[in-house]
């Protein structure tokens, strides 16, 4: 009876349950960071990685698409980690960002979005070709998926790709976003990701809003607004270029 009413309370107050749950998860991660790695691996990096592991566990138990949030007890995690709160918090990080840094990197930041979209598309398309795809629609859809998991299906739908190919493009984009979240703190020192200027370019090159959001949070929270700013233009530019110019280029070459 006590257990029933406890579950009832936790389910009815889903978002509040999520706050408590994430709080415990973050606390646990910072303890791990301090005790096991002596602070070498940042607590938030561990928290994000643990979140992904739990999402895997949740997905394999419930067979849903929302990771942990598919447990009715933790449905609030889906609200808390959804696009609405994510974007709200991203906008908030811009408060206090330097206007000067933005102005200085304005041109190269914009260029990095274009370069990023084309680069990821080409890489994805080359991988598709090397796996034996010859249809320009399929090649373009997979290339677009390597940009982000939104550009992929938007491009596939616009070009009339079949649903299997669209699913593959989403998977390519998801792999990218997960890898950017986990990998960024490790490669950051090697690629010089340590200034607002570099962060602006990084956001433009990577483009996956969730990947960039997680990757920069785990690297240096001060860099978040700069990377997030350019990343938010990426999906739009990708949806513009992939089904049009880039698809025509693929069709001309194949």
């Amino acid at each position: 009876m006590i257990l029933d009413s406890l579950i009832d309370v936790l389910t009815k107050n889903a978002l509040i349950t999520a706050f408590a749950f994430v709080g415990i998860l973050v606390w646990f991660s910072y303890e791990l960071s301090a005790r096991l790695t002596r602070g070498h691996i940042h607590g938030s990096a561990i928290a994000i990685a643990l979140g992904l592991v739990l999402a895997y566990v949740g997905g394999s138990i419930t067979e849903g698409k929302q990771g942990l949030a598919d447990f009715s007890l933790l449905a609030g995690v889906g609200v808390m980690g959804g696009a609405m709160f994510r974007d709200f918090a991203i906008v908030a990080t811009a408060f206090g960002a330097e206007l000067e840094a933005l102005k200085r990197a304005g041109f190269v930041g914009a260029a990095s979005v274009l370069i990023g979209v084309v680069l990821s598309f080409v890489v994805g398309a080359v991988v598709a070709v090397s796996f034996g795809y010859t249809d320009p629609v399929a090649i373009s859809t997979i290339g677009a998926g390597a940009a982000t998991y939104i550009v992929g299906p938007v491009t596939g739908t616009a070009l009339g790709a079949d649903s299997g190919v669209i699913a593959l493009s989403v998977a390519a984009g998801l792999t990218k976003s997960v890898l950017v979240m986990i990998g960024t703190p490790f490669v950051a020192p090697r690629i010089g990701l340590n200034s607002p200027h570099a962060a602006l370019i990084y956001g433009g090159l990577m483009g996956t809003t969730s990947g960039v959001a997680g990757g920069l949070a785990a690297t240096d929270p001060k860099l978040v607004p700069y990377g997030a700013m350019t990343a938010t233009f990426y999906t739009g530019v990708g949806c513009l270029l992939a089904p049009s110019v880039l698809f025509l280029a693929v069709r001309a070459i194949v």
Binding site: S44, G59, G81, A213
Partner: peptide, 22 residues
């Protein structure tokens, strides 16, 4: 809200479709 950014990103990570990616 700026300080809630990291916890929100952790929640975002926990609701990703990791299975589909892997």
């Amino acid at each position: 809200w700026s300080a809630m950014y990291i916890p929100i990103v952790v929640a975002m990570a926990a609701k990703q479709n990791v299975i589909a990616a892997i």
